[in-house]
């Protein structure tokens, strides 16, 4: 076999393998989207319905707006679930604010670690513990503690615990960006007469801005999709979208897959958009200083 042919075959092999995984990845996502357009009877059909012959926007209408349903006795409103708008707002508020804190404080801490070693490497790794202990271990006493502080069912309460549990990722990611910034650039600014604060503001921040944005969005993803803490620390006011999703278990009509899917599409789409936006930076943040450039 000549070299060229061999190379071509290898090439085809590669595309084949990648495409198989691409299908595995795409299929469930396709299924969510397809289900969100299916009428009730196609949700759990035998054999499965890959694309409904009568696609409908009904699910979206029921989930996101008030929807009229006709039956033999007349017309009735199927309000079904409480509308997710409030949950959407909560999710946005909580994840944006807690991410803001985690990233803001994380940036300062990361700068200190990168430039002045205010935490030793050992302490930096210990910081990871905040992330690595399963939340289920502390959630019961936390809810009790929160209730005495009147933090249950408040945005503040969720923001505090989210900021803490995402801080390790924030510090590690941003540190990896700052580490890449040559020290000399800051020194140049300082010796040219800029104060430390000024240097931070005018030189460091603009240069790691894309990294900070990436970190911000990454942590936004983590908090956006968190379930257990949101479930137990919320009541009426601050239920988030994942909590909202979990109540879509029907008892009489079976699970309302179509409605769930219609909501899931709404919950997931923003994340996918964000993820695509930050894909180049994700890797750096994940590598925890283990990848040298």
């Amino acid at each position: 076999m000549n070299r060229n042919l061999k190379r071509k075959l290898a090439q085809y092999g590669k595309y084949f393998a990648l495409s198989i995984w691409a299908l595995i990845v795409a299929f469930p996502i396709y299924w969510i989207v397809a289900t969100s357009f299916k009428p009730d009877r196609d949700w759990f059909a035998w054999p499965p319905v890959y694309w409904s012959e009568e696609p409908t926007l009904n699910n979206y209408a029921v989930v996101w707006a008030d929807h009229k349903e006709e039956y033999e006795g007349g017309t009735q409103y199927s309000h079904s679930m409480q509308k997710p708008w409030k949950a959407l707002r909560n999710s946005l508020f909580i994840s944006v604010i807690s991410t803001f804190f985690a990233v803001g404080f994380g940036t300062i801490l990361a700068y200190g670690v990168s430039r002045y070693q205010i935490l030793s490497e050992g302490r930096m790794f210990q910081l990871l513990m905040l992330r690595m202990v399963p939340p289920i271990v502390i959630v019961a006493p936390l809810s009790l503690y929160y209730s005495t502080l009147h933090l249950l069912d408040t945005i503040t309460g969720l923001v505090i615990i989210y900021s803490i549990t995402t801080l390790p990722y924030s510090v590690w990611m941003i540190k990896s960006f700052i580490d890449e910034l040559p020290l000399e650039i800051e020194q140049a600014a300082m010796i040219l007469g800029a104060s430390r604060l000024r240097t931070l503001w005018e030189i460091v921040f603009p240069l790691v801005r894309s990294g900070i944005v990436a970190t911000f969005l990454f942590i936004l993803i983590l908090t956006w999709s968190e379930y257990l803490l949101a479930l137990i620390l919320s009541k009426t006011e601050v239920a988030t979208l994942p909590v909202e999703l979990s109540k879509y278990e029907g008892s009489v009509e079976g699970r309302v897959y179509g409605r769930q899917a219609a909501l899931a599409v709404g919950v997931t789409l923003p994340l996918i958009a964000i993820g695509i936006f930050i894909r180049k930076h994700l890797a750096r943040g994940f590598s925890f200083g283990m990848v040298k450039r």
């Binding site: 691409a22 469930p28 997931t268 695509i276």
Partner: peptide, 27 residues
């Protein structure tokens, strides 16, 4: 882009999707 999508999917959505996909006569 395609390969990073699953990570961006909310875990609880994955659970429900699993239920839709994995029943014996399922897709």
């Amino acid at each position: 882009i395609l390969f990073i999508l699953p990570m961006l999917t909310v875990p609880i959505v994955i659970a429900y999707t699993g239920e839709m996909l994995l029943y014996q006569k399922g897709p």
